[in-house]
Design a protein around this nucleic acid. Structure first.
Lengths: 197, 197, 197, 197
DNA sequence: GGGTAATCGAGACGGTACGTCGTGTCTTTCC
DNA sequence: GGAAAGACACGACGTACCGTCTCGATTACCC
């Protein structure tokens, strides 16, 4: 991360925000979430692992939710865009990609974020906004199928996209990220048949 | 509430489970959840409010999640079974009923349960089992449509049921229980068209 | 203990005290005290080990102290009387015997009794009475030396006996029952020289 | 008591031990012991009374025994050193001083400490260490008599000191702190005669 | 010889205390 | 003046016992 050694004992660098600490905290948070899940995620644990003081964390992230969001934002860019040529293929690939992506650490982080959003209002709002953005993004799969004439113009692509991702959410939240290929295929087929003209 | 006096001091009734205590604990849990939400929900708080000892709670509910689940299923009795004669109608009614049901306190309880399941393994297991049961139950809507010949026998009714409820979950978790009639109708239509032969 | 099998499940024998239970409880208490010391000694543990109900214990022994006293009383008769011919030898033998006796389970029981006596007044009173009796008994060692002309008549044999046993108490209470031969000899010598004319 | 206001709410003073809290805890412990005795003495009760958090107590005192020991040694400062010029006088004064000292609250504290040591291994260890220290300290009475030529060099002053204090212990543990002047004199005389050349 | 009463085991009950963990706030000291 | 370190008051965690209670069964005793 930093090019300097993740050195034993990091001291204050004086009256300025220390980017090393900032980075170390985010990394520690991510590591804890992916290793122990939301259960082991506490400010104390993050501070311990990042060799940072708790107040340093509280100074920059007013709540656990903000920290979670920052951690997730750092991760969310690595998703692939499916493009198989057919709607059903795209839907299936989308789900499989997302599930595979989540099966690494990001899944744990996102689960935690959802959980936190049930308690913390700010986290809820942030999650809602993030969702809208993603749904809109995924809706392009369907819009592309519309453009190909595969899907009728009357189809609500946002609702479809929302439904698609909701299935992934449920699998994530109930710990069924793996071994769901058959069900994913069934769901993708069902949804595709529901939309093609 | 029991219709008898909510008496001051409740004693043991001997070497048998005391239904009064059992009831008082569930009521206290429900009251705390609806008044203060998941944030204020702790075993200590429930015990305090129910005038029960903590061990009495732990004796009967191995984890917070089991208690949440019991509180939830006690409320669940008031759910209606849709029967509109068509699959699309049934799916739409199912979602609308569920969202309306959740809009009261049960939604908060179930949100708490999902959140808890992200933290605690026992909670996760309990939720998973509960889900399987509900998915199986809801699949009957689709199986009924199969019996009517509306839906082909090759359709995976469990996957469909899972998908259907996942949409409701996402709306619950992102705080969109109300004003979703148009989207619900779109989703129900899409899914129904995806399944009818 | 009983000539019948210490059978798996012991039931009531009707409207009369069941001596089997009584015995089993005392044995369980003794076993726990000698195996785990006062720390592990609880009514629950005794009941569990004796396969008895807690109320059965409370019925017959109103407090832990009473039970402790009964257990100790069952043990205390196995002490040897030293008779070496000299006061110093008798004092030394008395201490060594007592320490050896206590090194088995009785020591743990007596320690517990002393501890309990610091909390429970009835136990304190009982302990005091027991002490007076023992001190009087041990004083005979000194009186015998007086009779032999070894010790002057002006010596207070009760005070001497009290002092002697107090040393054993302190060793018991500070966990120094073993490996004290040199110190015991020094103490016996000192006391003997303090008394002989 | 601090001479400043026994203020309502005490805050942290930073990353250093807060002597106010420390003091408040010792005072609360002492007050509880003298008011309710060992029976009412619990870490919870001390924390409650001192308006301190339980972890603050556990941070500084690894066990109840260490706290008891600290309370006791805080009181112990008021003990006098006997110096009568003769060994017998010193021994007698030592015992009388100690019994008089114990007749106030310190006696209750030390009794509690001994009782606790029978339950808890850490307490036992702490008591043992404390004893060694005190025995060594008291042995100086005898060593002084050696220096005066009153006592032979072959006398084991540690064993003598141990024996001396053991008598006081027994009187404390059997509730005979008062009215023992005659017996104390007899014991002191006996021990002194046992040691002088 | 049938009813009563005492006893047994079992174990649930409302409690209290245990010792640990995490919270968010605060202060000191170092840079 | 930010950062580290970590103490602080607070309060929940899940467990162990406390002493009391009720249960259903099992006789012994007395009328």
């Amino acid at each position: 991360m930093t090019d300097l050694s993740p050195t034993e004992s990091r001291r204050s660098i004086g009256a300025a925000r220390n980017p090393e600490s900032h980075e170390a905290i985010l990394e520690a948070a991510e590591a804890i979430l992916s290793e122990q899940g939301y259960a082991g995620f506490s400010i104390e644990a993050v501070a311990r692992r990042a060799k940072a003081g708790k107040p340093t964390i509280y100074r920059w992230w007013p709540s656990k939710a903000h920290l979670l969001l920052d951690v997730y934002t750092r991760l969310k860019d690595h998703m692939l865009e499916p493009d198989t040529g057919t709607l059903e293929g795209d839907l299936r690939e989308f789900l499989l990609n997302l599930l595979a992506f989540w099966a690494g650490s990001p899944g744990g982080v996102f689960r935690s974020l959802i959980a936190e959003a049930q308690t913390d209002d700010k986290a809820g709002e942030a999650l809602r906004e993030y969702c809208i953005d993603r749904v809109r993004h995924t809706a392009r799969l369907i819009d592309r199928a519309k453009a190909r004439g595969e899907v009728g113009v009357e189809v609500d692509s946002l609702a479809g996209s929302d439904l698609l991702s909701s299935y992934a959410w449920k699998l994530l939240l109930t710990g069924r990220l793996e071994g769901m290929e058959r069900d994913v295929a069934a769901v993708a087929g069902m949804m595709a048949r529901g939309m093609v003209r």
